[in-house]
Amino acid sequence: MSTLAKPNLVQRLRYICGGTLPPSMAQWVIDDLTGPGAARRYMMRILIPIIPPLCLFLLIPGPMWMGLAMMALLYLPLIYFTAALMYVFRRARLAKHGLDPALADHRERERAAAAREAYERAHGRG
């Protein structure tokens, strides 16, 4: 079993901020963007770093609920749009690394093919 080239701390931080990794780490990029837990990692990378700046709303004079409401007015749409654009983001990141953007749906296509095959076996086709 070959070892997968992994980015060091500086490379990983640059990658999280939108930079590219060397071609030797292409498999790591593919696994990161399409492997198990990819959606969770994507959501965390966008939604967690924005929390400290949003907490600045709590410093505005007034009731606490007002600061929390202002935070929610920004954070809730961010959650929605982050989830909605996940597919577009993954394809763009793959293309930025010189990889085929179609890899973003590779696992979904495999699952659909397996489901179709099971359906056809169960209903007398194929």
Rank of each mutant, 00 (worst) to 15 (best):
R111M: 08
P49V: 04
P36C: 00
L54I: 01
P61D: 09
G35E: 07
R45G: 13
I46F: 12
G62N: 05
A112E: 10
D31G: 05
L85S: 13
L94C: 05
A38D: 05
G98S: 10
L94Y: 04
Y87V: 07
G19E: 11
A92Y: 07
R111G: 02
D31I: 00
L13P: 05
R40F: 14
S2T: 11
L54N: 02
R107N: 14
A72C: 08
P52R: 02
R111K: 12
H106L: 10
A104R: 01
R12Y: 11
M44E: 13
L58Q: 09
G126H: 09
G62Q: 06
A112P: 01
S2G: 13
R116E: 14
D105G: 07
Y75C: 01
L103V: 02
A115N: 09
R121D: 13
K6M: 13
Y42C: 03
M64T: 12
D105W: 05
G62M: 02
R14D: 15
R12F: 08
M64A: 14
L94Q: 01
W28A: 05
A104C: 11
T3G: 14
M86R: 10
L33K: 03
P49M: 04
G124E: 09
A26Y: 03
G18K: 15
A5L: 14
N8V: 02
E108C: 06
R111L: 10
M86H: 11
A26P: 07
R91K: 14
G19Y: 06
L73N: 01
P7A: 05
A102M: 12
I46N: 07
A72E: 09
A39S: 13
T82R: 02
E117T: 10
D100Y: 11
F81S: 05
L59T: 06
E110M: 12
R91I: 03
Y15E: 08
L103K: 00
R116G: 04
E110W: 09
V29D: 03
A115G: 04
R125K: 14
Y75K: 00
L56I: 06
P22S: 11
L13W: 15
M64E: 12
L76W: 08
A39R: 14
A114D: 13
P53G: 03
A112W: 01
Y15C: 06
F81P: 00
G18H: 15
A92S: 13
T20Q: 15
P61T: 02
I30H: 04
I16Y: 15
L94N: 00
L74R: 00
V29T: 06
D105N: 14
A83M: 06
R125S: 13
R109K: 12
P101N: 06
P49G: 04
S2R: 10
M86S: 10
G67A: 04
Y119Q: 13
G19P: 10
L47D: 05
L85K: 10
M43G: 07
P77T: 05
E108W: 11
P7S: 08
I30W: 06
W28C: 03
G124F: 00
A39F: 15
M1D: 14
C55R: 00
P61R: 04
H97G: 02
P77W: 13
H123V: 03
E117P: 01
G124C: 07
A122P: 01
L54E: 04
C17I: 11
R107K: 12
I60C: 05
L94V: 05
P22L: 02
L13H: 15
H106E: 13
K96S: 14
P7E: 07
L21N: 01
L9H: 14
R93S: 01
